[in-house]
């Protein structure tokens, strides 16, 4: 037995065994369970099969639709705010016009917010978006002569707070992604283009943009995922899962509310299945559209 375990044939399986076990116990089983639970009505000690009732109930559930709307809105806005701006910032940092030390300080200061726990970030932002005219954000808009706003009470202003928090925490990280993409572009490309007499703008369009595509696709994928599965930020900003009129409720927030707070596991599992389908559908479409799968086939 021992000899077999040490043989070259068995070794690879022993090496990947920890992964296979964790995968089976902590991913595969829950995934299947989640599928099964979504077709059940679950009361303590009693599970009844009810077919697709959970799903039909879900799609006529007004609050669930609000949650889906909020998650989509959040995802779309984060795509708009968290991709182009970090890309431009990365180009700024990568340009040779500015000196090294200043660049490093800039990079570090943008990255530091990503180190904070969402609890800390939520606390700071909740207090900065306070209601009185002495809170930082109200002081800020006061500079432009605007009246103090009750940020977290209104749907639109609450969203501004959420998005500010998202930008603050993720600009630096996304900038680093683009920066590492930019730095992997061989210098010769630009030199060759300069010899051919290309302008800076032409170089940007013809070399930088196509070369950044893999990075762009990666950032897009994780942003879609992160945007749709957002929960922590809203949970912290609103001091819990109950925001006024559900303006901060997300899909995961609804899953948490139904499953943990109301203990309706079957219904919550249905929410989870819908979330998985949405995320996979969007990301697969996006990956096909950007041609990432094709490239894998060529190899």
């Amino acid at each position: 037995m021992k000899k077999f375990l040490y043989s070259r044939k068995a070794a690879p399986y022993v090496f990947i065994l920890p992964f296979v076990v964790t995968f089976a116990v902590f991913w595969l089983v829950p995934l299947i369970k989640s599928g099964i639970m979504s077709t059940q009505k679950i009361l303590p000690g009693q599970e009844t099969f009810i077919g697709i009732d959970n799903f039909t109930r879900l799609f006529s559930d007004r609050i669930f639709l609000i949650a889906v709307g909020n998650s989509f809105k959040y995802m779309i806005f984060t795509l708009i705010l968290l991709i182009p701006i970090p890309m431009i910032l990365a180009c700024l940092v990568n340009s040779k016009l500015v000196r090294g030390r200043f660049k490093n300080i800039f990079k570090a200061s943008l990255f530091i917010p990503a180190l904070t726990s969402v609890v800390v970030a939520g606390t700071i932002f909740r207090l900065m978006f306070g209601e009185m005219d002495t809170a930082l954000m109200n002081q800020f808009i006061g500079l432009f002569g605007m009246e103090p706003v009750k940020w977290l009470k209104g749907a639109a202003t609450g969203f501004v707070a959420l998005l500010t928090l998202a930008c603050w925490r993720w600009w630096g990280v996304n900038m680093m992604y683009f920066l590492s993409g930019l730095q992997s572009i061989p210098e010769d490309y630009y030199e060759a283009a300069s010899i051919d007499g290309a302008t800076t703008w032409q170089k940007f369009i013809k070399i930088t943009v196509p070369q950044l595509k893999p990075t762009f696709v990666y950032v897009l994928t994780i942003s879609i995922y992160g945007g749709l599965a957002m929960f922590n930020e809203s949970y912290m900003l609103y001091q819990g899962n109950n925001s006024p009129n559900n303006i901060g409720l997300t899909i995961v927030g609804y899953l948490y509310r139904q499953g943990i707070e109301k203990n309706d596991m079957g219904y919550a599992s249905a929410v989870g299945v819908v979330l998985l389908v949405i995320v996979l559908a969007i990301n697969i479409t996006q990956l096909v559209a950007t041609g990432t799968f094709k490239k894998e086939d060529d190899k």
Binding site: P12, I16, F19, V20, F23, F26, W27, V29, P30, L31, K33, S34, M37, T221, Y225, L228, A229, F231, V252, L255, G259, I260, M265, A268, S269, G272, V273, L275, L276, V279, L280, N283
Partner: peptide
């Protein structure tokens, strides 16, 4: 099965953990 298992690794990276959270909690 090397490729099969490696595809699973990649797949896990794109499943939201929040979705598995509840059944995992029950388990």
């Amino acid at each position: 099965f090397k490729n099969f298992f490696f595809v699973i690794v990649l797949l896990i990276m794109s499943v939201p953990f929040e979705m598995l959270m509840l059944p995992l909690y029950v388990q």
